[in-house]
């Protein structure tokens, strides 16, 4: 007993120290991030001659053709126009490209690790971490919701998951912007899911099956009610996908900016501890939300695809 106690006390400090150090580093990083994010609206405020006291929260989350790197200056992005069609490169486009490049670099290196294996081996380190996520999406999200023949949709759903996740996480880096908090981006992603769902239903059930799903197997007398409802629900699903991702990613950032903005509205250092504290909590929550929303988008997409591909009635 005494021996055991001595062992425990001997091990305690050495075991807990790295954890404490890690926590301290994480907290410091979060603080730095929150403060750096606070730097942006404040510089906007001081730089704005007309606004004076006004804190432009919305500006912080909307798209633009300027990447502000206060106090290091700003990058003006090129405006491209084809006829009347404006395809200027914006902040969010740049963020998407960064996310895309990151994904290609990360996952091609992960794939290389697998190619190097002459026989199936246990993954190590970063490859293992990525595999955990890929495996989670593959089995627990896609396979669980689509079932038979899920492999066809795997590339799309894996890409959607990691693309949204990366965009969400990139948005948490100071000076960066969140592409997924833009409704045009989430709209496009939702349209892809919509197209895949409708295409799958056509392919699996034919035109007749696609039309009959609009009646939801209800008696003919109910068709005038059922058909509009089913027709609407066809569009409501991707609409919900679009709004959910957009609103979640926007809201967290707005709250953080608002919290930090309180310091400048009250013009007092006394507000700072509480404001930064709350912003910090929100920031931590945002990290969770980043994963959560990527998961939900992928999960619901697989669910809709699974429903479209299923051969039995699902109503």
């Amino acid at each position: 007993m005494e021996h055991l106690l001595r062992l425990l006390t001997a091990n305690l400090p050495s075991r807990r120290l790295p954890q404490k150090r890690f926590l301290a580093v994480a907290l410091a990083l979060l603080c730095a991030c929150a403060l750096a994010m606070a730097g942006e609206p404040s510089s906007d405020e001081t730089g704005d001659e007309h606004g004076g006291e006004k804190l432009d929260v919305i500006h912080h989350v909307t798209d633009g053709d300027v990447i502000e790197l206060e106090p290091f200056g700003e990058i003006h992005l090129p405006a491209i126009k084809i006829g009347d069609f404006d395809i200027s490169i914006t902040r969010h486009v740049v963020m998407m490209w960064i996310a895309a490049i990151l994904l290609v670099v990360i996952f091609s290196s992960v794939a290389n690790a697998y190619k190097k294996m002459s026989r199936p081996q246990a993954p190590k380190g970063f490859v293992n971490l990525m595999e955990t996520m890929i495996e989670f999406v593959r089995t627990d999200v896609v396979k669980a919701n689509i079932g038979e023949g899920y492999e066809r949709f795997l590339p799309y759903l894996l890409t959607v998951f990691f693309f949204i996740l990366t965009c969400n996480l990139l948005g948490l880096i100071p000076y960066a912007a969140t592409a997924t908090s833009n409704i045009s981006v989430t709209f496009t992603l939702a349209v892809f899911t919509f197209v895949i769902v409708q295409f799958t239903m056509f392919k699996e059930h034919g035109l007749k099956g696609w039309l009959s799903h609009l009646t939801a197997g209800a008696p003919v007398a109910l068709w005038p009610i059922m058909v509009p409802i089913e027709f609407l629900s066809m569009f409501v699903k991707p609409f919900a996908l679009m709004v959910r991702l957009f609103a979640n990613m926007t809201a967290g950032h707005v709250v953080i900016v608002t919290m930090i903005g309180l310091i400048f509205i009250f013009k007092s250092w006394l507000v700072a501890p509480a404001a930064v504290g709350i912003a910090l909590i929100m920031y931590a929550l945002e990290i969770f939300v980043a994963f959560m929303q990527a998961y939900i988008f992928t999960m619901l997409s697989s669910l809709f695809i699974g429903m479209a591909a299923a051969h039995e009635e699902h109503h």
């Binding site: 404006d86 592409a179 045009s184």
Partner: peptide, 24 residues
């Protein structure tokens, strides 16, 4: 924003294509 929709679609489709080949 139509321009952003265009770029999102292009970026995303390219990403799906490349990642399917290279990674997935």
């Amino acid at each position: 924003n139509p321009g952003l929709i265009f770029w999102t679609a292009v970026t995303f489709l390219l990403l799906v294509f490349i990642l399917s080949k290279v990674a997935w």
